[in-house]
């Protein structure tokens, strides 16, 4: 998949930059990155235009990643957009909750570019 538009939702600006760098190092052809600091900003960004991929933290102030996932369900723009959760918790129950709410995968922090590629690439192959 070429020239994708990615939304990265994380309350840490440093982590958003790391995720973007990992995507590029993993060889994913990123055309545009939109950043959001929480779920509220993330939903607003999706309403502005569809994304090819969404990567979201779970623990965030204002609106966490699980509430963000629930919010995405109501947006036509996001119906076919793969969402991958990024979590520090490593808690199985939180991951199960996220997958049940529609996430297509998860990445546990700390992570490598290879791990990002492993989780993200299959979701982009044949998506268009």
């Amino acid at each position: 998949m070429k020239g994708i538009r990615v939304l990265i939702v994380d309350d840490s600006a440093v982590m958003r930059k790391i995720v973007e760098r990992c995507l590029r190092q993993a060889g994913i052809d990123v055309k545009e990155v939109i950043e959001a600091a929480n779920g509220v900003e993330g939903l607003a960004a999706v309403q502005q235009g569809p994304m090819d991929l969404i990567l979201s933290d779970i623990n965030m102030p204002a609106m966490d990643g699980l509430e963000f996932l629930q919010g995405l369900r109501g947006l036509d723009n996001a119906k076919n957009t793969p969402v991958v959760m990024i979590t520090t918790e490593g808690s199985e129950s939180r991951v199960v909750e996220a997958l049940s709410a529609g996430a297509r995968g998860y990445i546990r922090k700390p992570f490598t570019p290879d791990q990002v590629k492993e989780r993200v690439s299959p979701l982009l192959d044949g998506a268009r």
């Binding site: 623990n59 808690s91 129950s93």
Partner: peptide, 21 residues
């Protein structure tokens, strides 16, 4: 990440302990 990674290494702690921002 250190807190999350640490609790993931302790048996029974990963799913039974939450982290703050």
């Amino acid at each position: 990440m250190v807190a999350g990674n640490f609790k993931a290494k302790i048996a029974g702690l990963c799913d039974a302990c939450m982290l703050s921002v």
